[in-house]
Simulated scan of single mutants.
Amino acid sequence: ARSADERTAAMVEINCETDFVAREQGFRAFAQAVADCALRAQPASLAALGETRLPAGESIEERRRALVAKIGENISVRRFTVLASPEHLGAYVHGTRIGALVAMRGGAASLAYDLAMHVAASNPRYLTQAQVPADVMAKEREILTQQAQGEGKPPEIVARMVEGRLRKALGEITLAGQPFVKDLDVTIEKLLKGAKAEVVAFERFEVGAGIEKRQDGTDATVRH
């Protein structure tokens, strides 16, 4: 769901048990209604979103329960996000399983869309290397050091190898360091510089990400 000025958007993940229900019109209408409510109310939590009233007067949670009773399959509103942009906001949905939002300052709206498509395809974890947490950096450095030492190189060579491999690894998990999906010879950082643009924030949802199946077949949410 997007605002009238196209600078704010809401994205939701709603889970069901089968692909059949995911294609059902009632389920899709419910998903759109939840996204519209998230955009309008911008609630502070998932619980608050569930209490938000739909235009017909019922809450999202009441509508969800009614839909479960009608379809006979469990449906859950798992997460949502609302992203506001100072200028351009790119949105891209790949099928019904992956969605991405990119807030960008400068450049053109078409670039924001392309970057949302890139985020959906390449799944960056962070915006820039500066945003990579220190513990993630330390763990990656430790792993790379052990690998390099196992190759029997002198300490000074090991140090250079680790730094080079660390830069490559960080480039793979940061949006700025990734090669642009539409031109692999250009990194996102260079693309933005050439367009005089800046990505302020991005969000990416993939249905089921972080959920594992227990041995009894039920879903378990893995918290990171």
Rank of each mutant, 00 (worst) to 15 (best):
R2P: 02
R2D: 00
S3Y: 09
S3N: 03
C16R: 02
E17M: 13
D19C: 12
V21C: 03
A22H: 06
E24I: 00
Q25D: 15
G26L: 01
F27I: 06
A29I: 06
F30D: 12
Q32I: 00
A35P: 10
D36V: 06
C37Q: 11
S45F: 09
S45Y: 10
A48V: 03
A48M: 07
L49D: 02
L54M: 08
P55H: 09
P55M: 11
A56W: 10
G57F: 01
E58S: 14
I60A: 11
E61W: 03
E62S: 09
R65L: 13
L67R: 10
A69K: 13
K70D: 15
K70Y: 11
E73I: 10
N74R: 14
V77M: 13
V77C: 11
V82F: 10
L89F: 02
A91E: 12
G95T: 09
T96I: 12
I98N: 05
G99R: 00
A103M: 05
M104I: 03
G106W: 04
G107F: 01
V119G: 05
A120Q: 04
S122F: 11
P124Q: 12
R125S: 14
R125G: 12
L127D: 00
L127M: 06
Q131C: 10
P133D: 05
D135V: 08
A138M: 11
K139T: 15
E140C: 03
I143W: 09
Q146C: 04
Q147R: 06
Q147M: 06
P155Y: 07
R165G: 05
R165S: 08
L166N: 05
L170G: 08
E172G: 11
E172C: 04
E172A: 13
T174S: 12
T174R: 09
A176D: 02
P179D: 03
D183A: 15
L184F: 00
D185A: 15
V186M: 15
V186R: 15
E189F: 10
E189G: 05
K190W: 00
K190F: 00
L191G: 09
A195T: 08
A197W: 02
F205K: 04
E206H: 05
E206W: 00
V207C: 13
V207L: 15
A209T: 01
K213R: 15
K213A: 13
R214F: 13
R214H: 13
D216W: 08
T218C: 10
T218D: 05
D219H: 11
A220M: 14
V222C: 10
H224R: 15
